[in-house]
Nucleic acid binder design. Structure first.
Lengths: 217, 217
DNA sequence: CGATGTGAAAGGTTTCACAGCT
DNA sequence: AGCTGTGAAACCTTTCACATCG
């Protein structure tokens, strides 16, 4: 089993490789990947070693081969279909941001409980009222949902999504979701981020250490 | 030194306690906090134990006392001042979301390189052109920046922020920042999130395990 | 009794150092 | 020579089990 932090970093390695392909680069070293990501070369190598492939050589990694290997192992092969639920200010910004074409996933729907809002928004992606969530998610085979509803609607909406067969939820609502069996939940607590950074600074100062809370997701 | 994941969770404990104070709750158990956050009770207790305080008793924790202790240790005492740099769709959504009053921090400025955009936006918070960043940040004693500029402007903007004395950066640009001494950087790679969730699902399936990549930040 | 608080064990992740390959 | 690949060591975090206390 690949460690979770390694999976996260490999997703970013993939991101870097995608760009390199656009730049028509052929080979790249772990040092260069590390530099672009702000992490150390041996971390990059270790992460790649979890893929159980034979993609490197003394010149470095073959960009295409490595990118393909990551795609296979992490399952970027088939397009992953996602949706955004809750089209307030944050949700619609994320929709606009994500509905453009991206390697490895595709936004296939948006949902909101306000029909009025659905009519006002102009998006490429089709929008549906919230009560159709589980039905639409099932029909469209959506695997991942971005949850940007108000805190008090989050749990119920998450349950509806799970009923529809969603396997992963990226939760932007500032409440913990519970009781969702077999679903990967990632919480992104934007409002806490500033407090977290502030606390990490403070904590580092308090213990009179140099700041060592480096880059992370 | 408090472990970084513990600091992150304590920020969320604080969040929960703030809500509890609004509900006028007096005491709360680690089990209840854990339930609200989607984590286990002993994790909550361990995290609280890092605060080196004596806040609990057999009935549970005194909400006010615990909240005060976290505020002191994590430095939420003085208002932390933050800014948002890059007011595109995502940046201005975040600004609208964050400029409301929140416990523990305050958004004090917004920046963008397009003067046109600065004139169009209607915000409570004052907005300034990007070339004034380091000057304004210094004058206003801003400690934390939310970075939502395009990828190719991120490194330079981060450097300007650091010149102005910023101690922490929440980086939404999909590139790693490097060479920033003494600055806490947190990366939020929104576009990678869907891929990460998708990969975690896939990885769990591949290794035929039940999904155990639980809740996390 | 029912909760906290915490050393100690278990578990996971990162770092290291060097073998191996082209 | 220069880079990858990886077992082993070091390090950090979580979990557990139980002493403790009102």
């Amino acid at each position: 089993m690949i460690p979770k932090p390694a999976v996260e970093r490999l997703c970013r390695v993939y991101h870097v490789l995608t760009k390199l392909l656009e730049e028509e680069a052929v080979e790249i070293s772990s040092a260069e990947i590390g530099k672009r990501m702000g992490i150390k070369p041996h971390t990059v190598r270790k992460d790649i070693s979890y893929l159980d492939g034979e993609t490197g050589s003394p010149g470095g990694y073959d960009v295409k081969a490595l990118s393909g290997r990551i795609r296979d192992v992490l399952g970027f092969d088939e397009r992953t279909r996602g949706c955004i639920v809750g089209l307030g200010r944050l949700g619609s910004a994320l929709l606009a941001y994500m509905e453009e074409k991206h390697e490895g996933f595709e936004i296939a729907a948006g949902f909101d409980s306000s029909v009025n809002r659905l009519e006002l928004l102009k998006t490429r992606v089709p929008l549906y009222p919230a009560h159709e969530i589980s039905e639409r998610v099932r029909k469209k085979k959506i695997r991942v949902a971005v949850l940007t509803v108000p805190a008090d609607a989050a749990q119920l909406t998450a349950e509806r999504l799970t009923e529809g067969g969603v396997r992963g939820i990226i939760n932007f609502a500032p409440v913990g979701l519970h009781g969702l069996e077999g679903v990967v939940v990632r919480n992104v607590y934007l409002l806490d981020e500033i407090r977290i950074v502030s606390a990490l600074i403070q904590s580092a100062e308090y213990f009179n250490k140099e700041i060592k809370y480096g880059t992370s997701i």
